[in-house]
Simulated assay, not measured.
Amino acid sequence: MSGLDLTFDPERQPRRFEVINGAGGRRQWSMDDKARIIAETLEPNAIISEVARRYGLRPQQVFAWRREARKQVARRSKILLPSCRRLWRRRNL
């Protein structure tokens, strides 16, 4: 027998009532918002779960944003490092 009781009892009050407004679906976070949230997680003694909860996110989403940010930094550094090395060599010749 499942724990779901579909009988109507006027004496029983619901414990929690949740109203969902709006169109629903996925929220769109701007890059600035994501950067600000990621920066909060990088603070000393920051707990990612608490930061995620503060913004109504799941910790997994914040971890995914951090992982994507690290990939972007790595891609940019691969592009920038060779050109920086060439500049350094020219100046030090």
Score class of each variant (00 low, 15 high):
3 G>T: 03
3 G>V: 05
4 L>G: 06
4 L>A: 09
5 D>V: 01
6 L>I: 06
9 D>F: 04
9 D>T: 03
11 E>N: 05
12 R>G: 12
13 Q>G: 02
13 Q>S: 04
14 P>A: 00
16 R>E: 10
16 R>F: 10
18 E>I: 07
24 G>A: 10
25 G>N: 08
27 R>K: 09
28 Q>C: 12
29 W>R: 08
30 S>A: 05
31 M>I: 13
33 D>T: 04
33 D>P: 01
34 K>H: 04
34 K>V: 02
34 K>I: 05
36 R>H: 01
36 R>G: 01
37 I>Q: 02
37 I>S: 00
38 I>K: 01
39 A>F: 04
42 L>R: 08
46 A>Y: 11
47 I>T: 11
48 I>T: 03
50 E>M: 13
50 E>N: 15
50 E>I: 12
53 R>M: 06
54 R>N: 13
54 R>A: 11
55 Y>W: 08
55 Y>F: 09
56 G>Q: 00
56 G>Y: 03
58 R>V: 11
58 R>F: 11
60 Q>V: 11
62 V>Q: 03
63 F>V: 09
63 F>Y: 14
64 A>N: 09
64 A>Q: 06
65 W>I: 14
67 R>Y: 02
67 R>I: 02
68 E>R: 07
69 A>D: 05
69 A>P: 02
71 K>A: 04
75 R>A: 15
76 R>Y: 05
76 R>C: 03
76 R>D: 05
77 S>D: 15
78 K>M: 13
78 K>R: 14
78 K>P: 10
80 L>F: 11
81 L>H: 07
81 L>R: 09
83 S>D: 09
83 S>Q: 12
84 C>N: 15
86 R>M: 14
87 L>Y: 14
88 W>T: 13
88 W>H: 14
88 W>F: 10
89 R>L: 14
92 N>K: 00
93 L>F: 08
